[in-house]
Simulated scan of single mutants.
Amino acid sequence: MTHEYDDPIDPERVAAAVRYIAERHRAEDRPVELLVDDVVRERFGGCVTSVNERRSASILPGLKLEIARQVFELVASGELIDEIDEASIESFPASDPPA
Score class of each variant (00 low, 15 high):
residue 68 A to Q: 10
residue 54 R to V: 08
residue 49 T to M: 02
residue 40 V to Y: 04
residue 31 P to V: 13
residue 53 E to Y: 13
residue 40 V to H: 05
residue 50 S to G: 10
residue 52 N to D: 08
residue 53 E to V: 12
residue 29 D to T: 11
residue 65 L to I: 06
residue 67 I to E: 00
residue 71 V to W: 07
residue 31 P to H: 13
residue 52 N to Q: 09
residue 64 K to S: 05
residue 56 S to D: 02
residue 57 A to Y: 05
residue 42 E to Q: 12
residue 33 E to A: 15
residue 65 L to R: 11
residue 29 D to H: 13
residue 40 V to R: 05
residue 58 S to Q: 12
residue 68 A to T: 08
residue 53 E to I: 13
residue 48 V to P: 02
residue 68 A to E: 13
residue 49 T to H: 01
residue 37 D to Q: 10
residue 52 N to C: 08
residue 43 R to H: 14
residue 41 R to A: 12
residue 44 F to N: 10
residue 46 G to I: 01
residue 28 E to L: 15
residue 61 P to S: 04
residue 48 V to H: 01
residue 48 V to I: 07
residue 43 R to I: 05
residue 63 L to Y: 03
residue 50 S to C: 14
residue 39 V to I: 15
residue 42 E to D: 14
residue 38 D to Q: 15
residue 42 E to I: 05
residue 45 G to A: 09
residue 36 V to S: 08
residue 61 P to A: 06
residue 37 D to F: 09
residue 47 C to Y: 13
residue 53 E to H: 11
residue 36 V to Q: 03
residue 35 L to D: 01
residue 29 D to P: 01
residue 71 V to P: 00
residue 48 V to D: 03
residue 59 I to L: 11
residue 45 G to S: 05
residue 32 V to Y: 04
residue 43 R to A: 07
residue 41 R to S: 10
residue 34 L to G: 15
residue 49 T to I: 02
residue 70 Q to K: 07
residue 45 G to T: 06
residue 33 E to L: 14
residue 31 P to S: 12
residue 60 L to P: 00
residue 33 E to S: 15
residue 31 P to L: 12
residue 32 V to N: 03
residue 34 L to Y: 10
residue 55 R to N: 06
residue 36 V to E: 04
residue 38 D to S: 14
residue 62 G to E: 08
residue 35 L to W: 04
residue 55 R to L: 07
residue 60 L to C: 11
residue 50 S to D: 14
residue 63 L to P: 01
residue 50 S to L: 04
residue 28 E to Q: 15
residue 46 G to H: 00
residue 31 P to A: 15
residue 70 Q to S: 12
residue 70 Q to R: 14
residue 35 L to E: 04
residue 53 E to M: 09
residue 61 P to Y: 05
residue 63 L to W: 03
residue 56 S to P: 00
residue 57 A to T: 10
residue 53 E to T: 09
residue 40 V to Q: 02
residue 67 I to G: 02
residue 35 L to T: 07
residue 42 E to L: 10
residue 34 L to R: 15
residue 69 R to M: 12
residue 31 P to G: 15
residue 57 A to H: 02
residue 36 V to T: 09
residue 41 R to F: 09
residue 62 G to C: 01
residue 56 S to K: 00
residue 68 A to H: 02
residue 44 F to L: 03
residue 40 V to P: 02
residue 47 C to D: 10
residue 57 A to M: 11
residue 44 F to P: 10
residue 69 R to K: 11
residue 70 Q to A: 13
residue 38 D to C: 09
residue 45 G to K: 05
residue 51 V to S: 11
residue 42 E to R: 13
residue 29 D to W: 04
residue 40 V to M: 02
residue 58 S to C: 00
residue 47 C to L: 06
residue 51 V to Y: 02
residue 62 G to H: 09
residue 59 I to K: 08
